[in-house]
Amino acid sequence: MNWHGIKAIYKFEMARTRRTLFQSIVSPVISTSLYFVVFGAAIGSRITEIDGVSYGSFIVPGLIMLSLLTESISNASFGIYFPKFSGTIYELLSAPVSVVEVVVGYVGAAATKSVILGGIILATANFFVDVQILHPYWMFLFLVLTALTFSLFGFILGVWADNWEKLAIVPTLVITPLTFLGGSFYSISMLPPVWQTVTLFNPVVYLISGFRWSFYENADVAVGLSVMMTCGFLLVCIVAVWWIFKTGYRLRV
């Protein structure tokens, strides 16, 4: 195992966060605060409670997930796409690092940043509403699993993308709508029965539901199913990354 290689990639990626502190940390915190102002204050005054939890508190897990998903994807995808774009990928391809080491370095750094961000958003939320965490270990597990899974997904996206537009299109046109429609700001039990069934095909529903359960013991789907779906998606991403490096897809000709 090339531990020095993993550490080098990890440190390099974390240094990028320090250089772009505003973009990486401050910007999502500001946008989350705005969500609290708009959704919590404006809509929250009309919807007082969902499943016995105040609306402001109810949306906290969904808001964290929203940032976690988009930031995990954008950090990991940018991390591997930029060396491809600038040409510095030659160094990574010619180095004695294995697939596992490259992925651990890039995805580990992206997931770390996302988990830190999740913690910051949680702390920010405490300024606006009361937040209870009934199952802190489960909450942390969901946080880490989701950050890892979507960082891996972002890594795949970064390898696949061959221009900036493709890099932005998946988070903008796929992830954000799925998150908004996945119960970030409402319980899916509030939807008509047909749409409840349709919503179950959205994988983000399971992440948000499981994560919200760890806070308030309120879930749209069974917690076990949430864990299974998250692990399943993680497995799919791992297999895809393994295939990418085995075949050299979009990396080696």
């Binding site: 020095h4 290689g5 550490k7 080098a8 440190k11 390099f12 160094e91 180095a95």
Partner: peptide, 12 residues
Amino acid sequence: ATLAFSRGLFGK
């Protein structure tokens, strides 16, 4: 920093 990165990447 870029030199330190290269050295680490190659396992040193």
